[in-house]
Design a protein around this nucleic acid. Structure first.
Lengths: 232, 232
DNA sequence: CATATTTTTGTTAAAATAATTATATATTTA
DNA sequence: TAAATATATAATTATTTTAACAAAAATATG
């Protein structure tokens, strides 16, 4: 870009923020973590988790920082969604937000911390009205993960480390919003060779119990290089 | 995002820029429009076309503005690529760039204007070293259109309004970097029902001549809603 | 008119996917 | 111990997609 700085004056200040669409998965439902503002302005309105980007931090780091501040989590899957840069998007400031989306394991976040920040999980179908253009961000993020699930095994970020195949199926059903055939699903997902069967069962949802699996990251990365596709 | 503004001081200024990866297609080759800086700093170095985002314009509009300034073109396909927001990416300023990529018809741009700005087309395989992280932007944009071509008929933005099927095939071959079977390609592309056959022939490349087609935007948008896939 | 060149059309086999039927298993509860 | 329930495996069929391949048509040029 060009280097002239004459567009900016002392009073015309450009702010850069980052907002994070945090997805979780629980009991067959895709969920979203949002929080209720406890300070002015806009006190009491629901909002995505976000922050201004500090002058001395990378945009990605700013997103990681807020995620950690609110959930206690580090090292989770997070990726840029897109930027929201219209002049009028924030009536208070000229503020550009670079939205991210994150997939977290809903059992692993710091519940005390989340509570303290006034944050809560909402079923993806029951998200209330959010501040500014945050509802649009959520919609865009949903579209993104729907598409992404086709070529990346996105589910494993959302499930606990050990999970069952029926659990994985319910996740895909929640993302795609359609029922899948359990026999074909099992066949397909096992044929990808990225699951390691464990010698344990999860009996929380059935009498017989279902075998637990874990994700084989090593095999997965090998396959990625060969360019496989994950269409379910 | 939160509203505290205490991260910023007068001297800690955050700049927001936009840079545009402009693709064209000519003679079977994918091409990139870049320009040589004629002013300090960094005079003489190649760079993507870009600008700071003005305080009173949308990010998208800033990108459209520079595209028009340099090529004379309006209303062409342009989409956000991703943001580049690391602290150290620009040694001079704390500047975040929101990169875009555009697909233009290489026959339609304003040649005089392009020349006046010191801009020129480079074959995608022969792009010189660019300023800052612009080579990375080009690489990312290429990856993006390769993937995008799988589910959006991206080619039609790059070809003239009327084009032949062999032309379209050469474009896909340039993007995928592999040869395609002309019989299967034709079958596939026609089966999508987004081409309108015209009663004219293009005889510039063969004795027999090839029928011209145009893109059926109406049918295309109908199909998009149904979620078709464009895998070639 | 024969030649050279590009465009155009069609068939067929193989592979992947989707839909269906069948059966067995482990476990709890009635 | 029979019934109920969710899980697991096997096999079959139908359907769709993909891949591989050959020949004819149109026309400028020599």
């Amino acid at each position: 870009m060009s280097k002239e700085k004459d567009f900016y004056t002392q009073e015309d200040k450009m702010y850069v923020a980052t907002d994070c669409v945090i997805f979780g998965f629980d009991e067959g439902n895709l969920k979203l973590l949002i929080f209720k503002r406890r300070v002015k302005p806009l006190m009491g309105t629901w909002s995505l988790i976000g922050s201004f980007v500090r002058i001395d931090e990378d945009v990605q780091d700013a997103a990681k920082r807020v995620l950690k501040e609110i959930t206690g989590l580090e090292g989770v899957f997070m990726e840029e969604l897109k930027s929201y840069g219209d002049v009028g998007r924030d009536p208070g400031y000229r503020c550009i937000s670079i939205a991210q989306y994150a997939l977290i394991r809903i059992g692993e976040y710091d519940k005390e911390l989340v509570k303290r920040h006034g944050a809560d999980w909402y079923d993806i179908d029951e998200v209330p009205e959010l501040v500014l253009d945050h509802n649009q961000m959520v919609k865009d993020a949903l579209d993104r993960i729907k598409r992404k699930a086709r070529y990346k095994p996105i589910g494993f970020e959302l499930l606990p480390e050990k999970f069952t195949i029926p659990q994985l199926q319910r996740l895909y059903e929640a993302v795609y919003r359609k029922e899948l055939d359990s026999r074909n699903f099992r066949k397909k997902v096992l044929s990808l060779n990225v699951l390691i069967k464990l010698n344990e069962k999860d009996k929380s949802t059935s009498r017989r119990g279902a075998f637990l699996y874990k994700f084989d990251y090593k095999n997965y990365h090998k396959l990625l290089k060969e360019g496989f596709n994950f269409e379910i």
